[in-house]
Write a protein that binds this DNA or RNA. Structure first.
Lengths: 230, 230
DNA sequence: GCAAAAGTGTTTCAGGTACACCCATGA
DNA sequence: TCATGGGTGTACCTGAAACACTTTTGC
């Protein structure tokens, strides 16, 4: 790396903070950790880490998410950069927030005690350190906006899921109830789901059919100039 | 600033790059500069600058925009952070992009030669250095999405403007033609504009009435649970 | 047989879209 | 008087929202 061009410029610690979201018990969940170091030791925080000189910021975020979940190949998007002067009480740190949507069934629970983490419902989020609450709020806004027009919500589910589950996922994202018939109608007329033969009997006696998201059909939909919309 | 907590971590040059947009001759325009330093001296770039230790990243962006336009109090929003390893050919630089919407009538033209800048139509953007083209593309996406649901487009106009001008602004943002009657209907039924008595006769013999965006009326609209939408 | 969740259609309404003519004025 | 851009209203159509009953099955 050639450093002769930009001289006498200040340099900064750069961190990534990750809003890792899952879905369980009909509610969105966020992974938070009890901080093990000062300042604010014992406070709840997002999963974070410093960016290394050898990696891009996207790679740093991916590394952090894998470290705390044990999952790779996770859907992630940048939320934004946070650069207030005193956002981190210990030192000047510029942080870039990312959100990750994970299938909680793939989560490695052994990492919970290792990193002192916990899944909490978004409706019951405790106070977070620094500006982490703002990062979460911005994430939820992005998620609400984006889940409506892109099929990103499926990243929160296993590859098989029932329509009632999918509906409750969207209800949790939008924080409002949705009419069952309208929801199913919209979804099924898009023709991007594949109905399975088996049913999920875990939450009712009758059982609900499993469906699978069909990426090929989705791509066709887009090619036809149509849009995903929920 | 206390630096005893986070030790042995890499630090980075952090820059801001600003997509400064204006509106003139019925088209969106972007301010670009011919780069005066290596690497890629002579290439077209966005307005950029390094973040100083004494300022937040938002303040850095504001400083840069003022420096290149001579205008303060500009509408700005963050686009995102760009952190690929070799995005800047000279050194590892993490850059945070911001877009700014300015009233070109307030632009200080004397700064053009000082900074080697030029306004170009977005439809005629030359090749830009580094990942600046990607920043512009992301900005245009954000602008198209956001201008449809928030009255941010008015930041590109003086405080008086005609409806034909406003329409051509939206046509330039969306890159498509809009029906005159539908546009006016939607806008006027929102009741957020104030009709002036004077006309703008510069672009027709008959002249078009000036209007003013009325922030109070807009706030009322929102309070009533209604939405801006164009 | 009953409780509990899954599944299914129709009507209504609002908002978006398409569309063509008259008006005012300077040259 | 004519060329140029400004201004106006209606009909249609699509998609969103509201709404209630039947089905399945384990207990």
């Amino acid at each position: 790396m050639n450093s002769t061009f930009y001289q006498n410029k200040d340099t900064f610690l750069v961190a990534v903070d990750c809003i890792i979201m899952g879905f369980r018990d009909n509610e969105l969940q966020i992974l938070i950790a009890r901080r093990r170091m000062e300042p604010l030791k014992g406070g709840w925080s997002l999963m974070g880490g410093f960016v290394n000189a050898t990696e891009s910021i996207n790679e740093a975020a991916k590394r952090v998410v894998e470290e705390y979940t044990g999952i790779d190949n996770i859907f992630m998007e940048q939320v934004g950069a946070y650069g207030e002067l005193n956002r981190d009480l210990a030192d000047r740190v510029i942080s870039i927030a990312y959100f990750a949507l994970v299938d909680m069934d793939l989560f490695d629970s052994s990492l919970i005690e290792k990193h002192n983490t916990r899944w909490v419902r978004i409706t019951q989020l405790p106070e977070l350190i620094f500006d982490h609450k703002k990062m979460v709020d911005n994430t939820i806004n992005i998620l609400q906006r984006k889940a409506a027009i892109k099929p990103i919500g499926f990243n929160l589910l296993g590859d098989q899921f029932t329509l009632p589950t999918l509906q409750s996922l969207y209800e949790s994202i939008y924080q409002e109830r949705i009419d069952k018939r309208n929801f199913r109608k919209k979804l099924l007329t898009m023709d991007i789901l594949e109905k399975m033969e088996e049913k999920d009997k875990s939450s009712s006696k009758r059982g609900a059919f499993y469906y699978r998201f069909n990426k090929e059909k989705y791509d066709q939909l887009i090619e036809q100039g149509l849009h995903f919309s929920l």
